[in-house]
Amino acid sequence: MFRRLPEIETAANAAAQAISFTIDGRPASARAGDSVAAALLANGITACRNTPVSGAARGPYCMMGVCFDCLVTIDGTGNRQGCQVRVAPGMAVETQNGKREVER
């Protein structure tokens, strides 16, 4: 669980910085400059996928593009690193809960 610092939330330009996008079809809001992974965490979503190996839930871990645990589907393209993509207005972010699960 993460929250925005109050100094940012109450800043005069907060509204101007707001970005509307969707998470699994539901409307969500983020701040310009947020990565998709940060936007998910800011919206209370810590788990963004289930692993294709065991189905275990995973969420962002490194936030710098090295761990590949924040993989999500962005505008229809799967396995994108949520921490490396900036959230954009109207972006459709889908968690990969089971979608890419395959037999083992």
Partner: peptide, 9 residues
């Protein structure tokens, strides 16, 4: 990184 980029704590 979350703090620096997004002011998240």
């Amino acid at each position: 990184v979350l703090l620096k980029t997004s002011g998240l704590v």
